[in-house]
Design a protein around this nucleic acid. Structure first.
Length: 289
DNA sequence: AAAGTGCTCAACCGCCGGAAT
DNA sequence: GATTCCGGCGGTTGAGCACTT
């Protein structure tokens, strides 16, 4: 019983890819497209495992890939998304156009995971003054971040690692959108355009609401509740139908959809509305589970 | 200059879930 | 329903490089 290995590993090349192998793989995929990874090596004439080909293509050879030079904005987004999603690298990568899950995972493990520390962890380190640090293995350093982050005031929402190709839009939202002639947007937006125009239904998937609200200055909240567009640092008002909030910590901006704000404002107050929206999200996640 | 140590990141591994049979 | 196939995911490894002693 059990599964047979993805390929017989006898006689296959392993380790770093040569330029020649890269060219064969890239040429083959250009001609025949992605998929059928299992048979691809044989058909392309590569002495590689299908999985290895897939990985090489996705992480290195894809034409739209961005490598290195992760910008501060991207870094900030990674931190925030990690806070929300935990080690769901593929989900995080899906929000960073051109970035691969492997790159983000590596970046986190080598840089951000060490920088983003919890206060309890910092206290422990101060108390133990290096003793604990010495004992910590590399492996535990790598894996502890999400767990400990999950114990912070911003609990990680444990979703399933499902590809988000469809967005559930509640009926009332759908009606409003139809009424306003708004189109749902793809999840695969460029970073800036994603921040420019967040789909209301996408919104809960993208951000930690509690975190977001905590970061928003009180006057911004009241301004938003009055549906007054905020003037950002460039002196540009939010677009019609959405209001921009600038996060004081990150400098990143977020938009609230006008209809959504209208709904919040007209309800029983932000708190109860937020609670019900979060309940809806929880139900959605339960369904997914 | 040599040895030791730390860091980065491409690649591998094992497992999982959905689809097909 | 059980089994197999396949694509995809997150965790881990190790070669190569940079830096320090």
């Amino acid at each position: 019983m059990g599964r047979r290995p993805c390929c017989s590993k006898v006689g296959l090349n392993r380790g770093a890819w040569s330029a020649h192998e890269d060219k064969i793989l890239a040429d083959y995929i250009k001609a025949h497209g992605e998929g059928k990874w299992r048979d691809l090596p044989k058909r392309a004439g590569l002495k590689r495992c299908g999985k290895s080909c897939r990985l090489r293509w996705l992480n290195y050879l894809r034409p739209d890939i961005k490598r290195g030079n992760i910008s501060p904005d991207e870094e900030d987004l990674i931190i925030r998304l990690h806070k929300l999603l935990g080690n769901r690298w593929s989900l995080i990568a899906g929000r960073l156009p051109g970035r691969t899950d492997n790159e983000i995972k590596n970046y986190w493990n080598t840089k951000l995971g060490k920088e983003v520390k919890t206060i309890p962890e910092q206290l422990n380190e101060e108390r133990d003054h290096g003793k604990l640090k010495q004992r910590k293995s590399k492996a535990s350093l790598r894996t502890e971040a999400p767990k400990e982050l999950g114990e912070q005031s911003h609990p990680v929402i444990r979703t399933k690692a499902v590809r988000c190709t469809k967005v559930y839009i509640p009926q009332h939202q759908d009606d409003r959108m139809a009424g306003q002639n708004l189109e749902p947007r793809s999840n695969e937006q460029a970073l800036e355009s994603m921040l420019e125009d967040v789909d209301p239904a996408d919104f809960f998937v993208d951000f930690d609401m509690q975190d977001l609200l905590l970061e928003v200055p009180a006057d911004d909240v009241s301004r938003v509740c009055r549906n007054e567009p905020r003037e950002d640092s460039n002196g540009v008002h939010g677009r019609e139908g959405s209001n921009r909030m600038l996060s004081p910590r990150s400098g990143l901006s977020c938009h609230f959809h006008g209809a959504m704000l209208e709904e919040w404002r007209d309800g029983d107050g932000l708190q109860s509305k937020l609670a019900s929206e979060l309940n809806a999200l929880a139900s959605l996640l339960d369904l997914e589970e």
